[in-house]
Write a protein that binds this DNA or RNA. Structure first.
Lengths: 340, 340
DNA sequence: CTGAAAGCGCTAACAG
DNA sequence: CTGTTAGCGCTTTCAG
């Protein structure tokens, strides 16, 4: 593993180090002849610039930080994550950026990880996933005046760069789909309550019910721990009440999988006994049994645009609209059904 | 976003920059008094070391590279990936390492990405996932003598650091499970044929059949494109032959999901008409309908140990056994059934 | 135990 | 168009 530096190249090419530096950065005023000479020398020696040294002086790292939502082990095992990451890397790759990931086990470590990356000057900008209400990391970054982008949105600051779906509308639309199918008693299975996305989806659900003159029954809004089976009890109670819901809006495909199983275990079949709709359209939602009606939110695209948005900002482009919205669409499958 | 350097701290603490440096690196011979003074100054100014500068001189980056299998878009959308990454980050986090990810769209870009990371001195070591037969990246890294670890194994080099399951044994075990259930005609759905893991699992499957005196029917070994529906045709042909398989060993849970759907579409029910077993035990395999019998390979653990193995090597520890094997276990669920 | 000095590999004025 | 010079922020001999 040779350690060939700019000096070695300079020597071989018979020029000064600065000239080599210039051909690396494609400086305009450099004669084709020397450019060629230098290129050949670089080739011959197998030269690659030391990125650390470059960054130290140029003050930029061609690296983006990605902080993983700590609490969100659940979110994280979610195929959503890999898909969004794939989109992020795709665009980063085009622009020759890499992505530096850091994890944390609790909010404190999360802040530490961010601080280390930012103040350690390891990255040029940062991507935040799954922002919360009054998110401390957002506040911190705003305080540092460090460039960042939200995959999601901030409830408090509407000038921060963000790429998001219109989750309120999405939830409104999918709930209306159920209403149009004749459902009148519709439950909701929510995500972590402090996530903005959870709040938005719940709001859209409520809005649709209210507009249709249907009841928002607090008992029918259940936590996202269904998957873990903790809410099994709550679920059977709801389903065995005199007038149980005939449909559920579920915050996430993976949770929908869990719910379908739990219902099955409790003796209820989807969609014959109860309809299920959810969000995200992960690949597996189509392969579920039954296939799940869901809102396609363009996961890959979300990741792609998030990085694009951030890199544009970093390149000093004027951002006309800081809040970017990725359109959603309903994917109707067999898990939701017309009520007779 | 202050840019406070070691000099600022030195000035405030009334010492020299080198002393500050020593405090940072916890040098033994430093008086408690000055140590305290310096610590306070760092605190007061909100000092964080510039990691680029540190790396430039110390020659290590506290960063591990992760190259994503390019072809493996399919593997990548797979929840397997997020889970293994979670394990990797968990251990990296403990040791204060970060993970730098780079993607590529083809083998050429893949090599470039590695080269850039390695020769750009951005990372101390590298993690390779899903190695192939005669993997060019492995060869390259060996040539550079750059530290790396395989999540999987190399077929050619048995001294390289690797963390893996005994996939031959795993496939052998799960196939035997079917045989014990009375199945005599057992098909196989394979992964990308150049991946070592595919080769190993196929081998284990064949071994079990041979030992049991059962036929290895070439027509029953089908490609992994079932999920995409390309193999739908092949599948119906097999299933409608006079003596169709009564069970399939499938290389991956996600593919199993797809297969179950395809079978269902073709009029065959799992497990009544045909049993399905697969590998990985992703969270969703339990939530499938029916729940899938699978081999738990300890995904999280694989990721965790892979990073541990690499970091140990980097710290100069003597590695007794370069090839680390994570045990597997069968998870019997409803998708496989005793044959009457 | 601590400071001064040199240098990691690269870039960016400033001259020529 | 190209070389010289001076750092980027940090660590590390080498003297004291």
């Amino acid at each position: 593993m040779s350690s060939v530096t700019i000096k070695d190249v300079a020597r071989l090419a018979g020029v000064s180090p600065s000239t080599v530096s210039r051909v690396i950065s494609n400086h305009p005023k450099i004669s084709p002849a020397t450019k060629k000479k230098v290129r050949e020398a670089m080739e011959a020696l197998g030269y690659h610039p030391n990125i650390m040294a470059q960054s130290l002086v140029s003050k930029n790292t061609q690296t983006l930080g990605l902080v993983l939502p700590h609490s969100a082990e659940k979110i994280f095992v979610n195929p959503f994550f890999s898909e969004v990451l794939r989109g992020m890397l795709a665009y980063a790759n085009i622009k020759q950026y890499d992505i530096l990931m850091s994890s944390a086990n609790n909010p404190k470590e999360e802040i530490e990880a961010v601080t280390r990356m930012v103040l350690g000057r390891r990255i040029d900008g940062i991507i935040l996933m799954a922002p919360r209400q009054k998110d401390p990391i957002v506040e911190k970054l705003l305080e540092y005046q460090f460039p960042f982008v939200l995959l999601g949105r901030s409830m408090e600051h509407d000038h921060v760069l963000s790429v998001n779906n219109d989750n309120i509308k999405a939830a409104y639309d999918i709930t209306n789909h159920l209403i149009k199918q004749g459902h009148k008693r519709i439950g909701f299975v929510s995500g972590p309550p402090d996530l903005v996305v959870s709040i938005d989806r719940l709001e859209g659900y409520k809005k649709a019910l209210l507009e249709a003159g249907l009841p928002v029954h607090p008992d029918w809004i259940i936590g996202e721990d269904v998957l873990q089976g903790n809410a099994f009890h709550a679920l059977t109670m709801i389903m065995n009440s005199p007038e149980p819901p005939t449909a559920f809006v579920v915050t996430d495909d993976v949770v929908a999988f869990g719910l379908i199983r739990e219902l099955y275990a409790a003796g209820f079949h989807v969609p014959q006994d109860v309809s299920i709709v959810s969000f995200n359209n992960i690949v597996l939602s189509e392969l579920s049994n039954p296939p799940i009606t869901t809102v396609d939110i363009g996961i890959y695209h979300l990741g792609y645009l998030t990085v694009q948005h951030l890199i544009r900002k970093l390149s000093g482009e004027e951002i006309e609209k800081p809040q970017m919205i990725v359109p959603h669409r309903l994917i109707i499958r067999e898990s939701s059904m017309k009520l007779q």
